[in-house]
Amino acid sequence: MRVLVTGPSGFVGSRLLQVLASDNSLEVIAAARRESFDRPVAVRLQTGCELSSSMDWAPHLVGVGVVVHTAARVHVMNDTAADPLDAFRAVNVDGTLRLAEQAASAGVHRFVFISSVKVNGEGTTKNSAYSPDLAPAPLDPYGVSKMEAEAGLKEIAQRTGMEVVIIRPVLVYGPGVKANFLKMMQWLDKGVPLPFGSIQNSRSLVALENLVDLIVLCTKHPNAANQTFMVSDGEDLSTSALLRKMATALNKPARLIPLPAWFLHVGARVVGKTDLSQRLCGSLRVDISKTRSLLGWNPPVSLETALKETAVHFQESRKR
């Protein structure tokens, strides 16, 4: 079977390429804008692939049975676009639906779309969880664009018969992770005292290996057709617990100061970091029972193992 992967140089896409390329029954195509990234030798590269409303995907879709769409304009803090929603829609909605329409016309059997938990919203209570069947409630332009892309894909699936699978990941971590997760490791590695010793929230995470494992399963499992799935490690934990587990993985002490959450929220508001405060102190849980029951899927990598692999990569990369 021929599989086309968009976003092949990204955090998720690059690891997905490696896993797919290890399956000799697959012919894997990386659809990228340019050549400047590492990829397995067995992977065929197609360049000049842009997520836009005018892109001609037809030459790249010949003989393709499955498209895995990981590419997107990603959520960033302090977006500088004049109209962030328009900027997200141009790529995440218009570009995605252009690809999907042409995939259906080319006879692609299944389209796997990597969406986001932000379609559900920005947070839950400590004792509740997002499920794929809850009404969408995105609060930022990125989440809105992913919701609109999902709706458009479902319409295309209904009209053309092409199967669509939607996966909504939570925060993805693993070897090579960037952004706030990397900063957290850097703080712990330097022994910086952190004011999160009393945070008793509950958050879902997903290891890169677990997400990729589910994506691969969704390319072929018959029960995945036209379904939406949440994905996580299946183990929710507080920010305090996460920092302690990561410190253990780094073989470093966790210097956590027990400040109350309300104090951190107030301080974050004063310095304009309310979003960061919500991520560190608020809860966001997902229910993966549908993923488990419908697909028979369980996360193959434990949270402790994934954290250790992430920590080892971080420490080795600092030596280079």
Rank of each mutant, 00 (worst) to 15 (best):
S277P: 02
R159V: 03
G282H: 08
G65N: 14
G7S: 08
L205S: 01
L295E: 11
D133G: 10
S238V: 03
V301M: 10
N180Y: 05
D38A: 15
S116P: 11
L205G: 05
N120H: 02
L26P: 02
A225V: 00
H313S: 12
P138D: 13
A58N: 08
H313L: 05
L171A: 10
V119A: 09
A254P: 11
I29A: 07
P299T: 11
L237F: 13
K308A: 13
N298T: 14
E304V: 12
R320Y: 01
G107K: 05
C281R: 03
T248V: 11
L243R: 04
V66K: 02
G282Y: 08
V170G: 02
A241E: 15
V165N: 00
K252H: 11
L61F: 05
K126Y: 07
N226Y: 07
P222E: 15
P222M: 04
V117D: 05
A268I: 00
S14A: 15
T310E: 04
L205N: 04
T70K: 06
V64M: 05
N120M: 07
A179Q: 12
V170C: 15
H69Y: 11
E101Y: 01
L45V: 11
R15T: 09
S145C: 00
L217Y: 06
A90D: 08
N251E: 15
V286W: 03
R73D: 07
E304I: 12
L217I: 13
Y142T: 09
H313V: 00
A254W: 05
Y142G: 06
P299E: 13
V68M: 09
N251T: 13
S317V: 13
S105H: 11
K319C: 09
G152V: 01
V266G: 04
G191I: 05
L194R: 03
S36K: 14
L259H: 00
S240W: 02
M1C: 00
Y142F: 12
V165C: 08
Q186R: 15
S202G: 10
P175S: 10
A71H: 11
S283N: 14
S293M: 00
L295Q: 15
A58H: 12
L85E: 14
S289H: 13
V216C: 12
I215M: 15
A179G: 01
L97A: 02
N78C: 09
E122V: 12
K118D: 08
G197I: 08
S14V: 06
R15M: 10
F196S: 03
S283K: 01
V3S: 08
Q227C: 02
S54E: 12
L85M: 10
A71K: 01
Y173C: 04
L17F: 08
A151P: 00
W262M: 07
V43Y: 00
S289A: 13
H265N: 05
V266W: 14
V3A: 02
P141C: 03
R2Q: 15
T219F: 01
N24L: 12
A58K: 15
T305R: 14
S202R: 15
V270D: 06
D275N: 03
C49R: 10
W57H: 02
I29S: 06
P300N: 09
K319G: 06
Q315N: 12
I156N: 01
T160G: 05
H60F: 14
L153V: 06
E122F: 06
A72N: 03
